Computed example of a mutant assay.
Amino acid sequence: MEKQKGPPVPTGVALRDVRRQLFEAADRILLRDGPSGLTSRAVTAEAGCAKGVLHKHFEDFDAFLADFVLDRVERLAPEAAALESRKGTGTVAGNVTTALAAVFGSVAVAIVALITFRDELRARLRDTLPAGVPVLTEAAEMLAAYLAAERDLGRLPAGAEVEVLAAMLIGTGHLLYADRTGQPPAEETVHRMVSSVLHSSSA
């Protein structure tokens, strides 16, 4: 007797689900083992997928990694919206401290290490993100937009160079969070750094 086939799974839905599984597996491997542990075999094993699944959906492993990085860049959008919604409330230093914890408390630091680790990945990302370091560049743009809004509200000096301040905050924040194997910096440490950088705008 011929076996009855179930209803077809929409291709788009299936692909989104596979991408999510593989990307989340890559997150876990990066955070646990670092860039050197991130291989196609490790990703499929972590995701509980057959070995050929990744190459069925992506041209090669670097194509997978490029999509993975771009997906994580897009995940900054909710953080940007949350930060924008806090303008004019609380303190500027407190809001920035919360934003930095959200950015660097995620997989962002490990992704920067991954981009540095793989030459081919950097080359592929240049087609879509021609300038700066993915994730860090977008995070700096997010902070600059927020600081500009606070400057317009008079909560930062009128002459504050928000792009410079944002770059300083992201660069110094990255240094504070860079050791993925250790404990993240205390909130007070990050807040003190943020306050110092913001204070420089009024010097």
Rank of each mutant, 00 (worst) to 15 (best):
M142A: 08
A178G: 00
M142D: 05
E141V: 12
E141W: 12
A140T: 09
A166N: 11
M168L: 15
M142P: 06
R126A: 15
E161F: 01
V133Q: 11
A113C: 05
I111S: 02
D152Y: 03
V164K: 02
L165E: 00
R155G: 07
H174P: 01
G173P: 02
R122A: 15
E161P: 01
G159F: 05
G159Q: 12
R118S: 06
D119R: 15
P130A: 11
V109Y: 00
T181R: 14
E120P: 03
A139L: 05
D152W: 04
D152S: 14
A160I: 06
R180T: 15
L125Y: 02
A160S: 13
M168W: 02
E150F: 13
G154S: 11
A113M: 09
P157D: 09
Y177A: 14
V133W: 04
G159A: 12
D179Y: 03
A166I: 01
Q183L: 14
E120L: 12
G159R: 13
D152N: 12
T181D: 13
T172C: 00
P130Y: 11
E163Y: 00
G173S: 09
G132A: 04
T116E: 15
A110M: 03
R151S: 06
A166K: 04
A148K: 12
P134T: 10
V112I: 13
I111T: 01
P157R: 07
F117W: 14
D152C: 02
D127Q: 11
A148G: 13
Y177S: 09
R180Y: 03
G132K: 05
E161G: 00
L169K: 01
Y146D: 05
P134C: 07
G173Q: 04
E161H: 10
G171C: 01
Q183V: 11
E150Q: 10
L153Y: 08
M168K: 07
A167F: 06
G171K: 02
E163K: 04
A123S: 09
A140K: 03
A167K: 10
L156Y: 09
L121W: 00
L147H: 03
A149T: 14
L153F: 08
L169M: 10
G173R: 00
R118P: 00
R155T: 10
L147N: 04
M142Q: 09
P134R: 04
P185R: 04
F117N: 10
E138N: 09
G159V: 00
A167M: 06
R155C: 08
L147F: 09
D152F: 07
A149K: 11
L125W: 02
E138S: 11
V164Q: 01
L176E: 09
R122F: 02
A110R: 06
M168Y: 08
T172H: 06
A149I: 00
I170M: 11
A167S: 14
R180C: 01
M168F: 09
R124D: 08
A139E: 05
P157N: 06
T172V: 00
L129Q: 07
P157F: 03
G173W: 00
I170Q: 02
R124S: 08
P130F: 09
A139T: 07
L125M: 09
G154T: 05
E141G: 12
D152Q: 13
A144S: 15
L136A: 13
A113W: 07
T137I: 06
Y146N: 03
D127K: 15
V135R: 02
E150W: 11
L156S: 08
A140R: 08
L175K: 05
R122P: 04
L114E: 10
A139N: 10
A158W: 03
